[in-house]
């Protein structure tokens, strides 16, 4: 039998999911010596996965990656089939009868809740929901976010936490020329949020932000970054970590945080507080979120693999 991959018998590939992984797979196949036909199946009507619905709307340059995918999509070997959930509308067994191979690039869709008491109260949301909402993802655009309170608490110190906090910290003028969904802009315009707390389980030397993301907090129109200098005190293991050349990103983050800790008193409308060595243990409220109880942590273990241990001491926000 003649091997697939020729003009008469192209290698037929089904790709499940239309995010970056799906498009780079397509690109590699088209560039190969084989003649291919690619069918890309996507659950949603439109392609590009989390580049469309995850990457922050005010990071428009990053969103330009879409142009690369759009170019791949124009290739004659490529065919996009939207609105089809593989596993529901079509089975993998069916795909296998019509294609030589199936490539799974369906991302990581599941939400992770904190798993603490009260995390199901109204007012407690996962980042997936909030991010999907402000990016107009069909699954989340009808969600309701109540921004009538003055405090928002963000758990985690990676780039998604930075995105979420920055969207809450910006005013309408900073957001209106971005790709943010109209419905989200309308709600954010009425926001009463004054204090945003970004809570990290470990210390300032272990925060996972890209330095560029923290730097943006120093450049906002109506929000200043705040860091308590006492929270920047390091144990000797963390000092070691920051001296490590391979860890220059963390050093940069630490330097930016240090700069924030010595800023003059903020007189802007909003403040974004970076705070460290705390884990959420309980969310309390009568019918909705009112307070969060945090336990203070200390770090244990060797440099670069320190983990956070609870100290039993708690505070409220």
């Amino acid at each position: 039998m003649n091997q697939p991959g020729t003009k008469d018998n192209p290698l037929r590939i089904a790709i499940v999911g239309s995010g970056p992984s799906g498009f780079y797979s397509t690109e590699a196949l088209i560039r190969s010596e084989l003649t291919v036909k690619v069918d890309m199946f996507e659950r949603l009507p439109s392609p590009y996965g989390l580049v469309r619905s995850g990457v922050a709307p005010d990071h428009q340059k990053l969103k330009q990656a879409i142009q690369v995918y759009a170019k791949i999509a124009e290739q004659p070997e490529f065919n996009f089939i939207g609105n089809v959930t593989v596993g529901k509308d079509i089975s993998i067994a069916e795909l296998c009868t019509t294609h030589h191979a199936v490539i799974f690039t369906y991302g990581a869709e599941t939400n992770r809740r904190l798993g603490i008491s009260g995390d199901d109260l109204p007012g407690s949301h996962t980042a997936t929901e909030f991010v999907g909402w402000y990016n107009g993802h069909p699954d989340y655009r009808d969600r309701i976010f109540d921004l009538s309170h003055e405090t928002a608490v963000i758990i985690g110190q990676g780039n998604v936490a930075a995105d979420v906090s920055r969207i809450l910290a910006k005013n309408v003028d900073e957001l209106k020329h971005t790709d943010i969904a109209e419905h989200a802009l309308a709600v954010l315009a009425e926001s009463n949020i004054k204090n945003i707390y970004i809570i990290g389980r470990r210390g300032p030397a272990q925060a996972k932000f890209a330095s560029k993301e923290i730097k943006e907090f120093g450049e906002l129109a109506i929000c200043d970054p705040l860091v308590d200098p006492d929270e920047l005190l390091l144990n000797s293991e963390s000092e070691n970590e920051l001296r490590d050349k391979s860890n220059s990103g963390s050093k940069k983050n630490y330097d930016i945080l240090s700069k924030y800790s010595s800023l003059p008193t903020s007189n802007k409308q909003r403040q974004c507080h970076f705070t460290f060595l705390k884990s959420p243990i309980k969310i309390i409220g009568d019918g909705r979120v009112e307070k969060i109880i945090l336990e203070k942590n200390k770090l244990t273990g060797d440099p670069m693999r320190q983990s956070a241990r609870g100290t039993g001491q708690t505070i409220e926000r």
Partner: peptide, 11 residues
């Protein structure tokens, strides 16, 4: 004009 400033290349 094409670079999206993702910084992936730097390290």
């Amino acid at each position: 004009d094409v670079c999206i400033d993702c910084s992936a290349c730097i390290p």
